[in-house]
Write a protein that binds this DNA or RNA. Structure first.
Lengths: 193, 193
DNA sequence: CGATTCTTTGAAAACAGTCAATCTGTGTGG
DNA sequence: CCACACAGATTGACTGTTTTCAAAGAATCG
């Protein structure tokens, strides 16, 4: 499975075979069954996790027990709680697997070491962070300015792969609408086409 | 006015007097009257802008002409459109002054040069970016999981300084609710106390 | 097959948005 | 200095959307 990670790093960050060897020394394979947790509330997030296979989600539980999905991730995405990771503080979130998944974990010290030793990796990470930030700004804009129908439409256009693989009620939670509303919006939307 | 910027960089990033001299060579003073634009839709954002004095806001116009506020900034905050800045693409946003303001602009090439020459600055910037990202994740969570009342309460607790200085209808826009709703939420909330 | 998860549907209630009118305070120009 | 315009805030009545609750229908999995 490391080959998938290697191929990704080669293509996206331009790493050499030499570089990849170093990375491999610091990457840990982890398999998760569907519904298994990668992180639970209260845990400290010690790893950045590359998804080689499968589908993951990060969410928070509110006081009334409702789940609020902050992000999804599939093959070639990363998942972690950056706040907990960076500050070594207990996470407020859960991360679990929506499908049987295979991850490559890189521990914090390792991650920092790799960033120092491989400048290309550092550069690529900065670019990825910038894109993540832009994406979150777009999402905020969607949250504050779109109707439920527009949010749905925007979601399936922005993340068609997620839409195919993720249960509707989780998409609803991600968008901040009830599952019933999203269900209705979707049938209405389908009829329009 | 540069002294304010210098004091900020000294305290937050630990810059030396030496460092600050270099920074000063690359910073440009800009004064804005209330309601003046710093950036308009279609412009490319060429600067990172430090707010030495005043209050700014960044927003988008939707097709129907409604304003949607993405961020506010006051003294010791930065404002820019990172997406436009990083990618050299036309911005989708407006940035304007809510009060007479004084900014220190750092042009892109200068900014990159400073980051290279002053490692402390680089380190501080990375920390700031990380905190910005965390803040945007919190805002998304507020958007998808809070009621209008909770959003309001969370806003005044998170940004009491903004709340004092920014018109209510812009706060409403920031939160994604109508000004009438926010007005009613606020009177209801005030009575509770 | 039975159990669980997921989706859909209907009806009622809660909520937020819209429209229109009014009120306030601020600032500008005559 | 006053009058007027303007930006901002509030209120009421109405409309429309979304949530909630409850129930039932698919789909999936062991």
């Amino acid at each position: 499975m490391f080959e998938i990670f290697a191929a990704y790093l080669q293509e996206k960050a331009g790493l050499t075979d030499e570089d990849l060897k170093i990375v491999q020394e610091h990457a840990m394979l982890k398999k998760l069954r569907k519904r298994q947790y990668l992180l639970q509330e209260g845990d400290i997030c010690h790893h950045h996790c590359f998804i080689a296979k499968g589908c993951m989600r990060m969410y928070r539980l509110s006081d009334d027990g409702a789940e609020h999905v902050l992000k999804f991730g599939i093959e070639n995405w990363w998942i972690s709680d950056p706040e907990s990771f960076n500050n070594n503080t207990p996470s407020n979130f859960y991360i679990d697997a929506l499908e049987d998944s295979v991850l490559l974990l890189v521990e914090k010290d390792s991650f920092n070491k790799l960033m120092k030793e491989i400048p290309k990796l550092q550069a690529w990470k900065e670019g990825m962070d910038a894109r993540s930030y832009d994406a979150s700004q777009k999402r905020i804009l969607s949250n504050i300015s779109y109707t439920a129908e527009e949010k749905y439409e925007n979601f399936i256009k922005s993340y068609p792969e997620f839409y195919k693989r993720v249960p509707l009620h989780m998409v609803a939670s991600f968008l901040g609408v009830s599952r019933e509303t999203l269900s209705r919006v979707r049938t209405k939307y389908a009829k329009q086409l």
